[in-house]
């Protein structure tokens, strides 16, 4: 594609955040698989192997996926537009002109707060989906949201 990658990546800490999230998911899955195995089966060896394989795959995913996602997701905000790109099997580039942005939100989940991270969501008047920038340093995200809001308020009209 004749599109250059956006200039910025998520905060480095986002990798840790996504990894912790994935490990929690893997742990929940391990319990969900392990408890019925102990309680409701005759504990055959082959089933233990299948279950262990499943949990191991989740663990591997939790370790590999955040690093890959970090490398592939990029974002950029210029004076004219917000530009993001992500994905590998299904690549996706989004561009929203500054003059058409309606709202800018920052969202912080409990885990994210622990790592000092925020997501920024940029919405236009279209129902076809907002642009999301994930895993930014909180101070950076707040500043970005403030800047975007200020720029969009300068534009007259209802951005449709």
């Amino acid at each position: 594609m004749d599109l250059r990658p956006p200039r910025n990546r998520a905060d480095r800490r986002a990798v840790t955040w996504w990894t912790v999230q994935g490990l929690i998911g893997a742990a929940v899955a391990a319990v969900a698989v392990g408890v019925p195995y102990v309680l409701f089966t005759d504990r055959p060896l082959w089933l233990a192997a299948v279950a262990a394989g499943f949990v191991a795959a989740l663990l591997a995913l939790a370790l590999v996926w955040p690093r890959a996602y970090y490398r592939l997701s990029r974002w950029e905000v210029t004076d004219e537009a917000v530009y993001t790109c992500s994905g590998w099997l299904f690549r996706s580039w989004r561009i929203a002109p500054m003059s058409r942005i309606q709202t800018v939100d920052t969202v912080r989940g409990p885990l994210q707060r622990l790592f000092g991270l925020s997501d920024v969501t940029v919405t236009t008047a279209s129902s076809a989906g907002a642009i999301k920038i994930e895993g930014l340093d909180h101070a950076l995200a707040a500043g970005l949201a403030e800047r975007l809001t200020e720029i969009t308020q300068r534009t007259p009209g209802d951005a449709t």
Binding site: W93, R94, A128
Partner: peptide
Amino acid sequence: IGWHFRQSVFQRRAGLATLVATTA
């Protein structure tokens, strides 16, 4: 009011891409 380019791994091999124009 915005663009969204999409390309799956199959489209990439075939040199194709999908362009979505968003509007209110």
